[in-house]
């Protein structure tokens, strides 16, 4: 069993497992956020009610702790692996053409991950922190008005650009990460691996696109 903690493969299993869990999180998160497309007061109240549910429901709270832990684990594990990988080649090639044998995203998961981490921190301080620790006004139904915060934030074109760019990074990260995680977990077969790969590509386009449309939609409709 020690192989599941110390070995290089174990570190990869954890990377894959946390990554796949975070993919599930993305689905849930997007599903909730889609409520931002509902116009008017009705949409506002529904979203704020949802936000309250998400911050108070015990099951969701447990899930959110797991999510935070996963992100943390994914980041730390990623750093450990990257450091080890750098150590494995102390001297680099004078001339190398990796584009001949692999796609860009697969070689730059660390860079993409760092962008995503920076985004997560920004994102949390923008919304989650304000919701949790800030003093926000309440809406007509008495819920904390996170909806208003969102609407206000995306008035700024800079925020919109940051969010859209970050979603592109997430898309690239998923483009390689999704199917790679399955391979790392040993899930591979010539009959279904192509399906997993296709699903991964679809996932990495649809989910980030869904997220990216929100700030754009808000920006275009509210300003």
């Amino acid at each position: 069993m020690s192989g599941l903690i110390k070995s290089s493969l174990a570190k990869k299993y954890w990377m894959a497992a946390t990554g796949l869990f975070l993919c599930l999180f993305l689905v849930g998160h997007l599903a909730g956020n889609l409520q931002l497309f509902i116009p008017g007061e009705e949409g506002k109240i529904q979203f704020n009610e949802y936000a309250k549910f998400m911050t108070t429901n015990p099951i969701v709270r447990v899930l959110s702790i797991v999510t935070f832990a996963s992100v943390l684990f994914h980041v730390i594990d990623g750093i450990i692996l990257t450091v080890a990988n750098k150590k494995a080649r102390p001297q680099n090639y004078a001339y190398s053409k990796p584009s001949k044998n692999s796609i860009w995203t697969s070689r730059n998961m660390g860079v993409l991950g760092t962008i995503i981490l920076a985004f997560i921190i920004t994102h949390l301080s923008n919304f989650w922190y304000k919701m949790k620790f800030g003093s926000l006004p309440v809406d007509s139904a008495g819920y904390t008005d996170l909806h208003g915060v969102v609407m206000e934030a995306f008035q700024s074109p800079i925020y919109v650009i940051i969010y859209v760019v970050s979603m592109v990074a997430i898309g690239f990260h998923l483009w390689h990460g999704f199917s790679s995680a399955f391979k790392t977990m040993g899930v591979s077969h010539k009959s279904y691996t192509p399906l997993i790969e296709k699903a991964g590509y679809a996932f990495s386009v649809i989910i980030p696109l869904g997220f990216a449309l929100i700030p754009i939609y808000v920006f275009l409709t509210n300003s």
Binding site: S8, L81, A88, P98, N101, S102, S180
Partner: peptide
């Protein structure tokens, strides 16, 4: 040796 990130360069 380093860790596998499934880039596929090896196989190519």
């Amino acid at each position: 040796f380093g860790n596998c990130t499934n880039t596929g360069a090896c196989s190519v």
